[in-house]
Design a protein around this nucleic acid. Sequence first.
DNA 1: TATTGTGAACACCTTCACAGCG
DNA 2: CGCTGTGAAGGTGTTCACAATA
Lengths: 246, 246
Amino acid sequence: MTSRQTRPRDRAERGIPEATVARLPVYLRALHTLQERGVATVSSEELAAAAGVNSAKLRKDLSHLGSYGTRGVGYEVEYLVYQISRELGLTQDWVVAIIGVGNLGRALAGYGGFASRGFRVAGLLDADESIVGQEIAGMTVENIGRLEELIAERGVSIAVIATPAAAAQGVCDRVVAAGVTSVLNFAPVVLSVPDGVDVRKVDLSIELQILAFHEQRKAGGPGDYDALATGEAPPGTAHYVEAVDL
Amino acid sequence: MTSRQTRPRDRAERGIPEATVARLPVYLRALHTLQERGVATVSSEELAAAAGVNSAKLRKDLSHLGSYGTRGVGYEVEYLVYQISRELGLTQDWVVAIIGVGNLGRALAGYGGFASRGFRVAGLLDADESIVGQEIAGMTVENIGRLEELIAERGVSIAVIATPAAAAQGVCDRVVAAGVTSVLNFAPVVLSVPDGVDVRKVDLSIELQILAFHEQRKAGGPGDYDALATGEAPPGTAHYVEAVDL
DNA sequence: TATTGTGAACACCTTCACAGCG
DNA sequence: CGCTGTGAAGGTGTTCACAATA
């Protein structure tokens, strides 16, 4: 997974296990799909299949929200959508600012899943003067100099950091100082933040490396049509020196 | 995070716990940073801080790879880089194809972390005729019609799916049929694949929803940051001026 | 009768605390 | 002495299997 960086876990914070919270959005998406198809009721078995989990897990997850099913029947789709949305806080709108408008920032800005899911992008900010002023996904890119101002004026509560690695911590410090307590970080660095601020990280290179690990176990190497024949064990000292960032 | 979709877990598959595997890339990145700074040795305490975990966890993780530290001293950075790289399968090159060349696909194609980390992007494919033929990050976008052909010719072993949701399952079926057994999915759908194929998913909307959940618990609603009011956060006068773009 | 909701068992992960060793 | 490596303890998460019930 994409990795975490949330505080140790305030168990009894409000009952719902973190692992369950992480799956609720998946259930919600599956339910939306069913809803579009006009399905009114689902069993845990069906919904679990659509969400890619097993049905016992699904039922236990939902049981943390309350008893919203009907024995012998299943769950009413619309009702469950509402309950999960409410639990996740999606019945209200969250104001998001995207900082860093390169290809990734653009992809995020144009992502349809935002508006429809309780998130409103209220700002695209960049430091590059040649990007500032451009129209992207219907918004004008603004200068990062106005970061604090915009966060306050527009009530931004979630900051999405899509800057190069070198800039990320600085931007993070600024948004936190401006009052933001939730950060979604796409830059390949570990951000340090004060207690009370949540950071979640999305890191594609980490995901690829995890895949590589498993792939290696399957075959013995990429393009491995000649197996582990030729020992790929290199000499005792190797040289890996590289720069890494977006 | 970012969610998973790996098979239940073949414990005793080869010893290393999944949770550990997921952190090794983080350690590796921290080690590379240290290496660039010319640091030759780190203690578990220092490395753990750089990676954002606690030191006991770090030591236990590393202990699954072997005994690569020196009591009373710490770990030799270069040696540890090599050992972790080898464990993750990064001492060999993995051939990657990116399917779907919208903004996200472009961001991925331009991601420097690829080449430097044992991944070689050997193809950018798209179905849109107006995109096919474009030069992106030094490569020419090719027609998705040639998918199977290219996978075979170039020995692609990891497919990155960055298509719209509606196209993702179809593309996935094709890459799997062509022999790919590792898929990194950015499309917001649950892919179904046969046993033996690993899928990892990166889903930004899920991450945002998890943040919203926690944010809601803190305050009571978006825009409500006079709740934690008077406290701590001073006016946003900090001026870290840094370059920001992707 | 079909399906939920859940106690109990199990598996996995994290943390503690200290023995072991350079 | 300082720091690693790890057994043991304590959590958290998953799965099983069945009683409860619409």
